[in-house]
Simulated scan of single mutants.
Amino acid sequence: MGTSTSSAGAGAGTSFDPPWLDDAGDSIDTGCADTPLSPSTDPSDDADGDKSEGDDENQATPPAGSPIAPPGRYQQARGALTGFIRSGSDSDLRRGISSFVKKGMGGASRAGSRMRTSAIAASSLGGFLATARDATDPSINAWVDSIKQRGLSAKNTALEVVQRLIPSGGSVDEESAKHAMDNAIAHLYEMDPATDIFNLTDDQIASLMAYTVAFDVYNRVQLELGRVFEKLKYAPQLVQNRLGQVLDYIIVVVNRSMEKVRAGGVERPMRDIANAALRDALTVFAES
């Protein structure tokens, strides 16, 4: 799970935003990211129609506070998540992720700006697959036909989709997005092995977008805090089981945020929905 490389985390005295951030996502094919997505069909969703804090009108607002990371930015997160590995306590898990977002990444708003590539990847993937389903783009239609003629496995088809959307990559954000897309499609197949990736419903596409965001958030935790977990003197199986619980928690929160932003009976562009779901989820993490 996650990215293949972890670090000790970015230190104090550095900017929350790396110098490449403005260019992150440039290699992702966003041609279908503004494809509209229908509102949720789940009657349990909150259908008050209110817009989330993460909507595009808030996206342009610069995050408040200093752009420079404070000393010990991940110290509390490391301590809480180390405690979670030891105890399995849900409160330790929530405190760890909350501190990771609030102090480690500068708060929900700054974290949303920092992780903008997550929303780009999710909306690009969702829009591409909706366009493939609806057969509205001749070039995509021809590409899908070529994939089907090759008789690829579900796993290899997923790899082809991701490669089509991110052919080069480069920055850590784009590499993480590639992993997140691939893992999200694999998770969708785990949930429903009979899934036809080129004939998804809007609800399935929304789930896939949520999984993409969730895996990218998880990748970020692994990237910044991974070495802490690697140094723990616990059985590798226990550490992996606990990290699986971290991922499950992140998926649940992001799924709920996706359901929330799709409520209200209004069709919206996938780019807006992905941004809103990411920012709403980060707010939930920070406040937990």
Score class of each variant (00 low, 15 high):
P43N: 01
W20M: 10
D17S: 10
T41H: 04
S40K: 08
R73I: 03
G54N: 01
A8D: 14
G11H: 03
G31P: 01
T14F: 12
D90C: 00
A69H: 02
L21A: 14
S7L: 05
S4R: 11
L21H: 10
R94I: 12
D46R: 11
D48K: 07
D50S: 13
T35C: 03
E53L: 10
G11N: 04
D26C: 07
I68Q: 02
D48G: 14
P67E: 15
P71E: 06
A80I: 06
F16E: 08
A47H: 15
S66C: 01
T30M: 12
D92Y: 06
P39R: 05
G9F: 12
A47N: 15
T14L: 15
D45M: 09
P39A: 05
Q76M: 04
T5Y: 11
T35Y: 08
G79C: 00
Y74K: 03
G83K: 02
I68L: 01
A10H: 03
A12C: 05
G2T: 10
A69W: 03
G79T: 11
S89F: 14
S6W: 09
D55C: 12
C32D: 11
C32Y: 14
A12N: 03
G49P: 05
T14M: 13
D22Q: 13
W20R: 09
G25L: 04
S66D: 12
S66Q: 02
S15D: 15
N58F: 05
G2W: 04
E57W: 06
L93R: 12
D34M: 09
D50H: 09
P62I: 01
D90P: 01
R86C: 01
K51L: 15
S15I: 07
P62T: 06
T14W: 07
G9Q: 10
R86Q: 13
S38I: 03
K51C: 04
R78D: 04
T82P: 00
T82V: 08
A10Y: 00
S27Y: 04
F84A: 04
P63Q: 00
T61I: 14
K51A: 11
A10E: 02
T3V: 15
G83V: 00
A69Y: 02
S89R: 11
S27P: 02
T30S: 14
S4E: 14
G49S: 11
S52I: 00
L81F: 06
A33K: 06
Y74M: 10
R73D: 01
P19A: 13
A12M: 05
D17A: 13
N58Y: 04
S89P: 07
S15E: 13
A77E: 00
P18V: 08
T82H: 03
G25N: 04
S87R: 09
Y74P: 05
T14N: 11
E53C: 08
S7N: 05
R73P: 01
A33R: 10
D34K: 11
S89D: 15
Y74W: 11
S4N: 12
A77D: 00
S44D: 02
P67M: 14
T41I: 14
A33C: 06
D90S: 06
